[in-house]
Design a binder for these strands. Structure first.
Lengths: 133, 133
DNA sequence: CGTTACGTTTACGTTAACGTCAGCTTTACT
DNA sequence: AGTAAAGCTGACGTTAACGTAAACGTAACG
């Protein structure tokens, strides 16, 4: 069975972030650890959110953008008031990500081409060297 | 026939950036516009580089990382000294981008799933409304 | 019971990537 | 010649996302 809650150190080790980062995310209302006295306890929900946060960052979204998106993933059945708004936001992000994917594919192709060129050049240099030897 | 060189305003309009940005990139040695008196003239080479810069930024690379990568694209046949180093760097970036692509695919799939859930919820809310009417 | 380890709050510091503004040239009209 | 437009060079300001350090709490260990 997996641990229900984690302290700050366990979180840091699990996700490779600093305590400062976790406190910062809490201050920005991206995470909501519960308190045991004054210590923070991070729940399964916090861990799911953190995973999404870190992923979002890798794709170049700001913490504020991510915060809004998290609502879609953690919308409890109570407050569907903003659901429609959140849904629109998600649609925009999805479009964003798909555009990013298309461009990424192109960039990868181009870089590969350049590297073929580079490999040829390197090969050529090595041949010259072995002739000189 | 395409224009050989562009002034700063034409560049800004073409790439949707500010003059400050172009001067900043020059200061950081990412661009090397020639001078006509004190005015900058951006060549075809500068335009190619700027395109790569902006693309790199969208993938979350820092300007410094991008600056180093640009060497691979604009290595003239003279200074192949650093070619091998640059090649290694490009390999790392390529791996980076392919990892990013894999994760992006996953993220897109997950977000889509969430949106299906959201769509169902929205549908449900609309039905309740029309019953009430 | 002292101290070591882990955690907390508060607050100022830092870096990247520009924005903004002042003051000066140069070019383009009229 | 006068002046408006476009560009230039500093130089200081700004925002996001943390880093870092001080000063304190508390819980367990020897």
């Amino acid at each position: 069975m997996t641990i229900e809650t984690m302290n700050i150190r366990q979180m840091c080790d699990a996700f490779d972030v600093t305590p400062r980062t976790l406190r910062f995310y809490e201050a920005k209302e991206l995470l909501f650890p519960i308190r045991e006295g004054q210590r923070r306890l991070f729940t399964k929900r916090d861990r799911a959110r953190l995973k999404l946060i870190l992923r979002g960052k890798r794709f170049g979204f700001s913490l504020e953008e991510i915060r809004q998106l998290l609502d879609l993933y953690h919308m409890d059945d109570g407050q569907e008031a903003q659901l429609s708004k959140t849904y629109e936001l998600a649609k925009r992000h999805l479009a964003d990500m798909e555009a990013q994917k298309a461009e990424l594919d192109e960039a990868i192709a181009e870089l590969k081409e350049q590297m073929v060129w580079g490999a040829e050049k390197l090969d050529q240099l090595n041949k010259e060297k072995s002739v000189a030897a």
